[in-house]
């Protein structure tokens, strides 16, 4: 469970987050949508304890990012767009290294890793990561982030730049994690993906939550056929 309460953050004199509140529940995919510069990545950085908030708090499974950042990290798996995979190690070595950092016993880590390889169709993990395409790298990145079996998973643009088969594999994997009861927070620009995956969405604009609800309810509220059209209406009405 993720609970964000009245979160504020400034960069210099610019207020990037102006008091946002949201909740992501276990067994659900919660979408965080917004145009560029809306505050999504800042929110995720605070959530993953990289940045500190200037007001408000975030709790991850009841652990505060301010008071208990180490416990928050243990409960979190984060997939950033920037992979952080070591190119001089193989995919397997990368994953097992991160498992070691998270204190996962080697035999348990290997068992999980091979299960994930099967789910995501990874058959190249013995090659050096420097030889991978973006899609191959992102699958390793995803496994790396959840090898310690965290109850909460944060995905920041996880399929950005991936081809269709890789995108499909990652989406199926996200559904599997949801079925396992994990709390998933998904930040993406791909509205079709939001419609397919998200149970509840928050639209963030200019540092504020400007709309929230299940995708279907938002489409009905704005009388649109797609979430994308609803999103555009929400954002443009907020501009006006």
């Amino acid at each position: 469970m993720i609970e964000i309460t009245n979160l504020k953050r400034n960069f210099g004199k610019t207020e990037v987050l102006k008091g946002i509140s949201l909740k992501a529940e276990p067994g659900k995919v919660t979408g965080l949508l917004g145009p560029n510069g809306a505050g999504k990545t800042t929110t995720i950085k605070i959530l993953s304890t990289i940045l500190k908030p200037h007001g408000g708090d975030i709790t991850v499974n009841r652990h505060s990012v301010i008071k208990e950042p180490a416990l928050v990290r243990k409960n979190l798996g984060v997939v950033f767009e920037e992979s952080g995979i070591y190119q001089r190690l193989t995919g397997e070595e990368n994953i097992l290294y991160f498992a070691d950092l998270a204190d996962v016993p080697p035999d348990v880590a290997k068992e999980r890793m091979y299960k994930f390889f099967e789910l995501l169709g990874v058959d190249y993990a013995k090659k050096l990561a420097g030889t991978y395409s973006k899609g191959m790298m992102q699958k390793i990145n995803l496994i790396r982030a959840i090898i310690h079996n965290p109850p909460v998973v944060v995905l920041d643009e996880p399929t950005n730049g991936l081809d269709v088969p890789s995108t499909r594999a990652v989406e199926t994997f996200i559904r599997e994690m949801k079925d396992e009861g994990k709390t998933i927070l998904l930040s993406t620009h791909l509205m079709a993906q939001v419609e397919k995956l998200c149970d509840y969405i928050y639209i963030i604009h200019k540092g504020r939550i400007v709309e929230e609800g299940p995708p279907q309810s938002i489409k009905e509220k704005y009388d649109t056929a797609t979430v994308e059209d609803a999103f555009l209406k929400v954002v443009s009405s907020d501009v006006a």
């Binding site: 304890t49 180490a70 990290r73 243990k74 984060v78 920037e82 952080g84 950092l101 998270a102 204190d103």
Partner: peptide, 13 residues
């Protein structure tokens, strides 16, 4: 330290 030391804050080094 990629990117900017941020990574390792998230993974328990």
């Amino acid at each position: 330290f990629t990117p900017r030391g941020e990574w390792y804050r998230t993974v328990g080094i």
